[in-house]
Write a protein that binds this DNA or RNA. Sequence first.
DNA 1: TTGAAAGCGCTAACAC
DNA 2: GTGTTAGCGCTTTCAA
Lengths: 336, 336
Amino acid sequence: MAVTLHDVARLAGVSFKTVSNVINSHPNVRPTTREKVETAISELGYRPNLTARSLRSGHTGAITLAVPQLRLPYFAELADSIISCADDLGLVVLIEQTGGLRERELELLASPRLRMSDGLIFSPLGMGQEDAELVKSPVPLVLLGERVFSTGSDHVVMQNVEGAQAATEHLLAQGRRRIAVVGAHENEEIGTAGLRLRGYREALRRHGVPYDDDLVAYMWMWHRANGAAAMHELLEKGVEFDAVFGFNDTLAQGAMRVLQDAGRRVPDDVAVIGFDDLDETRYTLPTLSTVDPGRGEIARTALKLLVDRINGTAAPGAQQVETKYRVVARESTAPR
Amino acid sequence: MAVTLHDVARLAGVSFKTVSNVINSHPNVRPTTREKVETAISELGYRPNLTARSLRSGHTGAITLAVPQLRLPYFAELADSIISCADDLGLVVLIEQTGGLRERELELLASPRLRMSDGLIFSPLGMGQEDAELVKSPVPLVLLGERVFSTGSDHVVMQNVEGAQAATEHLLAQGRRRIAVVGAHENEEIGTAGLRLRGYREALRRHGVPYDDDLVAYMWMWHRANGAAAMHELLEKGVEFDAVFGFNDTLAQGAMRVLQDAGRRVPDDVAVIGFDDLDETRYTLPTLSTVDPGRGEIARTALKLLVDRINGTAAPGAQQVETKYRVVARESTAPR
DNA sequence: TTGAAAGCGCTAACAC
DNA sequence: GTGTTAGCGCTTTCAA
């Protein structure tokens, strides 16, 4: 069996409460006592039972991060950032994959497993605005992304409309006029895809370029394979275009590869821009222009909001924070 | 405060033990009683306190996965697989990032945080064979990878030597004779890099091709940027080569990009092969040949070993399992 | 400065 | 079938 406080106390010849005091570095312990206890601790190799501590203290020292899938590079990089930040705060991170499925997301929010952690950072994908009232969690919650608003929870969002608009304007500024879109969601108004499409349309409008739905490829998950498939369809349809806006980098990458197979030169014939600023965009051929959505800032902000909420030091009322974006111009949109 | 068993019992008019029986679906509960209790549960929105359950039962329903960094795509895809498998078994996964630093890896093994989970799947990178005796954990442990052997723990490894040998032979079979290596570790015998280098040398030996250390680029972490930097160095040194073996796909990708910038055509002038079979290798230009190390099998096997160990149903003695590999030929090594 | 007692919410043994 | 009792290992009062 594992060594307990009592075992340590017995060896040190003190009460087990004194041992507890030492561990929690309470002020009122005589140095000699402390030393005796510390010797006993290392002699027995005592390690506190965090489960017992959690039960008693009411907090676990863990948070949950729920994302669609870690194999989507955006979420892998986000998780990396969040785990690093959390570690700095002494918190461990429990990861749940929802697959982006509404059912599983709802299940998660109701799951007793959430109570193994002190709070939840949740990036929904299947749920929508109509589920706003269901976004309730037994632990403090910070929402990420743009699927649901007005939930009463803290919320970190990127500037999707503005970022997408800037990406589109970056293409327009080079004289591109037929800009295909890869990654739209059917009938979506406020999800990430919906907002990025809005930014795209707004940019077109401002520049007097007509919107053409034939240029827009719809799909669900943003995997590379879907970007590739969408580009195949666009090419088969025979629509003319001189640029592609992938709603994320993996889509852009998949699309770019298919374009090249079809003999279109990037950027000479078709310029391509993505969204997310993944590491891999620096090493594609050509390197991929993109929008940096401030992933590090998202991680830090979400964690800060969550910790404040957990500690009860948060301002009353739900906070909504928007991170800064930045267009990163690379070879795939180099001027002709 | 949260609803407890007692609250439910009071509302249902039974003892709190009966409620516990219902929750744990014990056989001996009269249907009418069960129904009464279930009504009370849903009425109060009761959710079991897993911390209390853990304390009492001695297991948490969580496992820890410790990897260097999630932003290395190999580990992201591995984590994705492990989380999915774990979920099928009703387990949640806690992720720790060690940064591949020996210090942090040792710290982790000694951390009380491990006891928030029932077991550990650990992919070391900083520790080496000399640390074999330190590979001890307060919870059952399954090791991944090739940094440390003979630790007394279960171990899942890929066939690194054989896989690397096959990759090299794939290049040799096309008449390549000057094969550069990207990703070697200095003075390493048995780490992943050391074993892959051994496979490479073995292939050369069998085909009577002399080994040339000038063709080998050394480094530490396997990021794309390091692959790119290594290729810059090789080119600057002016060594001749007609193929590159990247010890993983991200290295190969970084190297390939630099090759192309330098005007070398892939595969016509230089063939390139990686290792890991990441999703992105299907979308680079050209698509990247690689070695599939059986990541799904690694995840499943590691989890099975761990669960058996946790349940005490494992065979006595440390198991060592080797997964199957497979060379995946793509455009980057297409015959000339 | 240290100790004793209570109890976090639950499960497991055993009695009824 | 159902209730009673004990206690997992710890922190938190409160008393000495």
